[in-house]
Simulated assay, not measured.
Amino acid sequence: MANAAFEELVEDFEFLDDWEDRYRHVIDQGKAMEALEEALRVPATKVDGCASQVWLHAQVEDGKLHFDGASDAMIVSGLIAVLRILYNGLTPAEVLAVDARAEMGRLGLNDHLSAQRSNGLRAMIERVRETAAAT
């Protein structure tokens, strides 16, 4: 089950008529994120399996997951922003209980991403889940 912020994003997507509008909305979400500090763009935070450069810095504070990220591709930055909306503020157990593929499907993302982008999205989800499982 998604949190309230993700439910709001789902509602936003329901008002967008076509995939191009949704695509732009995802990109806008990425543009609205704060930039990831250069010091955190290191091999340890780099996500393998993505066609573009992707860094995710995840941590658990006060029992809740928080992560930031960056990419050199606008759509991937938007996907990071969407994942942040989906996961940030959840406990590790809640993160592991989220069916990210189903939640992304509610936004129509599963049907409209290229195979490479879908693989990258899976890699990012797996990184977040690994962080949650390690705590």
Rank of each mutant, 00 (worst) to 15 (best):
T91M: 14
L79S: 01
R117A: 06
I80S: 03
S77L: 03
N110M: 13
A81C: 09
L121I: 13
A73V: 04
D99V: 10
N88T: 05
N119F: 00
H57C: 12
M104P: 02
Q116W: 01
H112K: 06
R117Q: 11
G78H: 05
A70P: 13
E61S: 06
A100K: 08
L109E: 08
V82K: 05
H66P: 01
A93V: 09
I125Q: 01
V95R: 05
R101N: 00
A93S: 10
L107M: 02
L79Q: 12
R101M: 03
A73I: 08
V82F: 10
G108D: 10
P92G: 03
Q59P: 00
D68E: 12
D99Q: 06
N119K: 13
A102N: 11
L113A: 12
D62R: 15
R122F: 03
I125V: 15
M124S: 13
V95H: 07
R122M: 06
A70G: 14
S118G: 10
G120I: 04
G63S: 04
S118L: 14
H57Q: 07
Y87D: 00
N110S: 08
L90C: 07
Q59M: 12
H66E: 10
V98G: 07
L90R: 14
L83Y: 12
G69Y: 09
L109G: 11
S114L: 05
D72W: 07
E126G: 00
G63I: 01
R117G: 09
R106P: 02
G120A: 05
A100S: 14
K64H: 13
E126L: 03
D111E: 15
A73G: 12
R84E: 14
V95N: 02
I80P: 08
G89Q: 13
Q116V: 08
G89N: 08
A58T: 07
I125W: 05
L121E: 09
F67D: 04
H112D: 09
I85Y: 11
D62C: 05
L90G: 02
G89C: 06
H57T: 13
A81I: 04
P92R: 02
G78W: 02
R122I: 00
T91E: 10
E61L: 07
A70S: 15
N119E: 06
L109Y: 14
N88V: 08
G108A: 09
N88G: 10
L90W: 00
L86Q: 11
K64R: 15
V98D: 04
L121M: 14
N110F: 01
M104R: 07
R101T: 11
A123T: 05
V60E: 12
L86N: 04
A73D: 12
A115L: 15
V60G: 10
L121F: 13
L113D: 06
G105A: 01
L109Q: 06
L96M: 13
N119R: 10
P92D: 02
Q59F: 09
L90I: 02
